[in-house]
Amino acid sequence: MPVRQREKPFGFPKPETPHGEIVILEERCKGCGFCIEYCPHDVLVLSKKFNAKGYHPPEVVKAELCVDCGFCRMICPEFAIYTYELKTGEKP
């Protein structure tokens, strides 16, 4: 199938993948690594730095891959990370 056809399924333009902006509130983090482990696009890694509590907060390495799925926000037990869609500015 030619590529052009695949890009217009049912005659509609292909929906755009949402892009999320990640905010990490480092001082709240307890370094559990849940967000790092369960990000479907491996956007986050454990950073080398410490916060005031002595934990390693996560660090964004592939910011452009975030799709604003919000899983990191839901799985964070410390309310320390969230994402929002840049276009509309709505909080997830």
Partner: peptide, 17 residues
């Protein structure tokens, strides 16, 4: 805040939900 739950405890996740 911060709450008393240990790092990697699951209670905070349920509060989120």
């Amino acid at each position: 805040m911060p709450h008393i739950w240990c790092s990697t405890c699951g209670i905070g996740v349920s509060v989120n939900c």
